[in-house]
Simulated scan of single mutants.
Amino acid sequence: MPTLRQGQFAAHIYTLVALLLTLASPSNFADTAKSATTKYSYSDAHLHIVDFFQEGDPLPDLIRAMDKGGIDHAMISGIPLMKKWHENEPKRPRYYAGDDAGMYWYSATDSYVAEAYRKLPKEQRERLHPFLCGFNPTDKNADKHLRQMLETYPNVWQGIGEVLTRHDDLTALTQDDTPRANNEAMYRVYRVAAEFELPVLLHSNITSKRERNPLYVSEIKDALAAHPDVNFIWAHAGTSATLHRYQDKLDFLLTELEKLLADHDNLYIDLSWTVLEPYLLDKSQDAAAGWVKLVEQYPTRFMIGSDALGSYDKIAASLKEYTPFLSALSKETAQKLARDNFLALLPPKPISDKLANADQDKD
């Protein structure tokens, strides 16, 4: 049997002692204790109550899932697109990418949300924050739909979105023009948002599947600059699962966010789903230092969400996956990210008050 020489044995002992001292340092104990004991209250800032077939579990199920997961509040919206079950397809697809059949814009999704919301008891409604999304973002009639829904359900709506503009394969399947964050139809939508103080949750990919540069960042820049009175929530920080399948990590993303946040006070970042990995957490599941620094620099400008699609059984687990990142932040910043920042963007007054004032002005 091989044996260690005296010098090798001493070296091994020294290494072991150093390792034990490192693990036993107060800072490591503090970090471990913080991660293990801190319980966060959450707002789910990105949640759809239906899927791409306009089907979803009832809202009482969502309330139960929120209670179970320590989620105080949730944004809720429909999905502005419906997946077509094509005549030539023998099996109904389960997801929008299940086959090559197209997608079409579906405005009734907003009515589904409003009616489901209004059936809840008042104390449950106070925890949910419905957003409008059932319009075609390439249609200059979109603002008319928004106004009609605001007037029909004046005590329901608290935001606009998720608006689906550039979205890789989803856009390719959609039966219409390619939507952009900076087209005239969307500018009309932003004017409604400004009038009623509604935040806009906007999906706008920062690049395409194959371009390793911020190809489309100018589109969101234009929208931010043209509408400084609108608070924009950039869904997934401009990323998507498809982008990551083709490109893995977007090396330019953090730098572009730093520039945009510095230049535009009306930009907020939704860190849901595709941002957690490979950005906020590294391969060892530790918080990425560059992202920790950015969030601490702009502690009121970030939020998290589950991006659930009509099913709520995993929303608590989705939000708790952020624990290693939250634990790397200061206590105050962590709670803002987990819960408070989303709530701070909601309109200060009900839409009905705005509509009443508008009617008085006409008189």
Rank of each mutant, 00 (worst) to 15 (best):
A108K: 14
Y322T: 04
L346E: 08
I206W: 00
W157S: 12
E321M: 14
M75L: 15
K259D: 11
K68W: 03
R301N: 04
L81G: 01
P299K: 03
D307R: 02
A193G: 07
I49L: 07
G134I: 04
M1I: 09
G78C: 03
T333I: 02
P90T: 10
L337A: 04
E89L: 05
A328T: 05
L16F: 04
D100M: 09
A185I: 08
H264R: 05
T333C: 05
F53D: 06
M149Q: 15
T300G: 03
I220A: 02
S318G: 09
I220P: 00
D229N: 15
F342R: 01
V113P: 05
R210I: 06
M103P: 00
P299M: 05
D251L: 13
G238P: 01
R118F: 02
W273N: 11
T37E: 07
W273K: 12
T152W: 05
M186Q: 08
T138G: 03
E184M: 09
T37Y: 09
G78S: 04
P60S: 12
R339W: 01
F196T: 06
Y312C: 08
E123K: 14
R210D: 06
V156L: 12
W85E: 04
A225N: 13
V292E: 01
D359K: 15
E211H: 00
N28K: 12
L62S: 06
L243K: 07
Y40L: 09
D222E: 15
R245D: 14
R94K: 14
E115H: 13
S240R: 02
R301W: 02
P214K: 04
A172R: 14
D57I: 02
H12Y: 09
R339C: 09
D313T: 12
H86F: 05
L260Q: 07
F9M: 11
D282Q: 07
Y187G: 09
